[in-house]
Amino acid sequence: MSRLSRRLFVTGALATTTAACGNGIGSNGSAKIDARVDAMLNQMHNRYPATLELENKAVGMLVMPLITKAGFGLGGSYGRGALRVNGVTVDYYSAAAASFGLQIGAQQFSHVLYFMTDEALADFRRSSGWAAGADLEYALNDNGGNVSTETTVALAPVVAVIFGQAGLMVGATLEGTKYTRILP
């Protein structure tokens, strides 16, 4: 093989390999995530109108329109969503969790993390991977009726609203969720 044809072969192979990678450039991944976020927020606001008040008090929110969770002894979950500040998407994130314990089943759900303080939002955005911890307050699940923002907002820098659960997960587990910035 001549030197020119080797270069052409290597260049072609690299171009093909790069094109096969889902690097997000020129893809519509962000548009899909934003469309899912918009649809989920509309559904949540219609079903739980009090979440609008919570949204208005928050300085930012991480919207995860669909998290899929499954487990049989060991389990895990994954989903992708958008961080919105003043109603505008500023970043995209994935949520991944691992769990272990007595568990069996699968379910899907949606959730929103409302950042109630500038400091909480800044901490989240600065971190290379943020794990939900003790400063997270859960405000709602599908068994609850109303969202009360007065006491929840006063006490917690981050409020989680979880809804739309479908499926069945049974057991007792230890779990941690990590949120990581992604390029869709």
Rank of each mutant, 00 (worst) to 15 (best):
R47P: 00
N46L: 05
L83N: 10
Q43S: 12
D142Q: 03
G29C: 04
G60Y: 11
A122G: 01
M40G: 05
H111C: 06
G144C: 02
G60F: 07
G22V: 04
A106T: 13
K69D: 09
F9V: 10
I67Q: 13
R7A: 13
V158P: 09
V170F: 14
N56Y: 02
M44R: 00
L8V: 12
H111V: 00
Y78K: 07
K57E: 15
A95P: 01
Y179I: 05
R3C: 01
R3N: 04
T149A: 10
V85S: 14
A122Q: 14
L113G: 01
R47N: 04
N23M: 06
G60K: 07
T151W: 07
L74T: 11
A20Y: 08
G24A: 13
G24Y: 09
I33E: 02
T17R: 00
G167T: 07
L83K: 12
F115I: 11
Q108T: 15
D142A: 03
G22H: 10
P65S: 06
L74A: 14
N23I: 09
V159K: 05
G164Q: 06
T149K: 00
E175T: 13
M44T: 03
N146Q: 10
Q103N: 14
G79A: 05
M40F: 04
A70I: 06
D142S: 06
N42C: 00
A120H: 13
A70S: 07
T117F: 09
K32I: 05
A160N: 12
R126M: 11
S27P: 01
R125F: 01
T68W: 01
L102N: 02
D135M: 09
L155N: 13
F124Q: 10
A50L: 02
L140Q: 06
E53K: 11
H111Q: 13
F163P: 00
L4K: 07
T51K: 00
G129S: 15
T18W: 10
G71K: 07
T149R: 00
S94F: 04
V63C: 12
M169E: 08
S5R: 10
A166E: 14
T11K: 07
